[in-house]
Design a binder for these strands. Sequence first.
DNA 1: CAAAAAATGATTGACGCATATCATTTTGAG
DNA 2: CTCAAAATGATATGCGTCAATCATTTTTTG
Lengths: 342, 342
Amino acid sequence: MKSPTLLDVAQLAGVSYATADRVLNRRGNVAEKSVRKVEEAMAQLGYIRNVAAANLSRNRRHRLAFVLPRQSHSFFGRMHEQLRRAEHHMKAARVQLDIVEFEAFDAGALDTALTRLLGQKYDGIAFVGQGHSEALAALRAQGTKVVSLVSDAPEHCRDHYIGIDNVKAGRTAARLIGMTHRGKAGHVILTAGSLEVRDHSDRIYGFKEVLRSDFPQITVSELIETKDQDRLMREALRARLAEEDGATAIYNAGAGNDGLIEVVRMLDLRAQLFCVVHEVSGKIREALEEGVIDVAIDQRPEIEMNRALALLQAIVDDLPPPPAPELIPAIYVRDNLPDEHS
Amino acid sequence: MKSPTLLDVAQLAGVSYATADRVLNRRGNVAEKSVRKVEEAMAQLGYIRNVAAANLSRNRRHRLAFVLPRQSHSFFGRMHEQLRRAEHHMKAARVQLDIVEFEAFDAGALDTALTRLLGQKYDGIAFVGQGHSEALAALRAQGTKVVSLVSDAPEHCRDHYIGIDNVKAGRTAARLIGMTHRGKAGHVILTAGSLEVRDHSDRIYGFKEVLRSDFPQITVSELIETKDQDRLMREALRARLAEEDGATAIYNAGAGNDGLIEVVRMLDLRAQLFCVVHEVSGKIREALEEGVIDVAIDQRPEIEMNRALALLQAIVDDLPPPPAPELIPAIYVRDNLPDEHS
DNA sequence: CAAAAAATGATTGACGCATATCATTTTGAG
DNA sequence: CTCAAAATGATATGCGTCAATCATTTTTTG
């Protein structure tokens, strides 16, 4: 009925509370056979340490930091927003949550931000971007738990990754475009921020793979790199549409959607072009409802933030990570957009 | 830095700890102006009760019950499975989690199951199905928090609903089918378990709505009701395909997918028919990979279970519900299925 | 076997809160 | 003003754990 306490364990093991405590918290100076007795008693009783009581007694507050690109565009803004929403809950759970911002396209900015966290005894951090292994290694060496977000870091640099599988996302985009062709020939214009960005290149990779194997009658034009800028998107896309007629679809694996929307709307191509993009923002919503964009694949950063918070809370206490089903990006058409506020 | 304790509040308010406690826990017998002073002090300090300490002190264990249909088909099986996975975490959080099963298609079974829970001082329950308001009202009257799952109960019967919007799901299915027609004419065969089941009828409703308004060139045949049985699906579908030729798509808003798969596979219609179904199971996976099924809309019961657990844990302590973005069902094509185990 | 080292036991005070008791003060009614 | 009722203060115990101290026992070593 009630869960066993450490005292119960000690008594069953035939040792004192002090010894059981020494075993539980690995304080050393315990005879081998006492360790065994205590561990057996724990197993037998199914003892689980009361983390709440433990944290209370040692007067522990968790300190977490989220290292995010400055709210440059709406995607990271949604992350900020979700963290803000969780603020009260974090307080109630006695965790102090700091958000550290860095300049989005500045190469060393993330690294300096991470390095600055080094001395500050954080229990856990989550970060977005290609983290330098150096600072991350140092953080982990001092016992800080590390979670990478959005695009994965090498395994030895982090404890967990929270984000979608971008190759799958690209494959999915290709499948949807393929489906709408129903065996007919077609031509897709491909755009992305940059192939240097891992998530973009993963998507492009998956996209081409599926088209090649399952929809060979659909051709792909050379990738347009937009640096995630609306202006570049606008100009390059307009040029490409002029020189290559007969395009039937567009897949934008990166940002810069506002530019895309503008062009498609201006040239009134919404009937001819099947447009698939990533991440929903205010303008995408409108464009979906209007029929300018047909599908938006969304990572749901809000959910990623919730996951990251729950995960960090668990692992900083050295608990196993909570059971979490794989993150599947939402596929939005105009009919299943979430209600505005949520 | 460290969060204020109730003692801090009392001191700032200029009253004793006892009085502050009387205010916090609404024990009464406190002068109006003392209440005000204490509340102001709380606001000023941003006091948040340490729930962990509170529950520790009163030696409180949460008791939750999930009332689910017997593992009749794979969908509820996935719910069971996820609860099982969460078992260890629940223990660590000091919550006792019971699963109560009832016979799936027995009308009164849910109600008797709920009634049986009445005397057992559960802190919270989650249930699937059309709950009789009577038992639910009684449960809530005794302080038990109630969450409805999968298909919503009337607002006054439950504290929260966790599940997808089935009208949106139906609309989405229609949109996807519409997209693959690209303006061409088509004909959809519609199937469902029964229109009496709320989620099924919602889906059908949304589906027809979108077809009518946005894809008038696509016709819909009369709904086939399968009672979610593979055999009925198989026979009725085969008959319908024989009498109405020229079908271009199938939308099954209910269960019985195994029967559907069999027919489409046998008649080798996978190239002609665009098939959209709900909920992924082992056979659906194969069928998606094989191209027999094109899209599976999945509620992701695993995620719903996690949500329900987190929500109940919060509200039984009278905390505000954790910030949770709207549940959007996953749209699976063969390329974005989750890895087998997860 | 004696002395040193290692292991163990016994116990205590936080941590923040719930809950209870009892004494004391303040308030309001007559 | 008096007395009862209401409000308040002071204080204690327990929840399960951590962390620490000190005394005592057992084991090891030379």
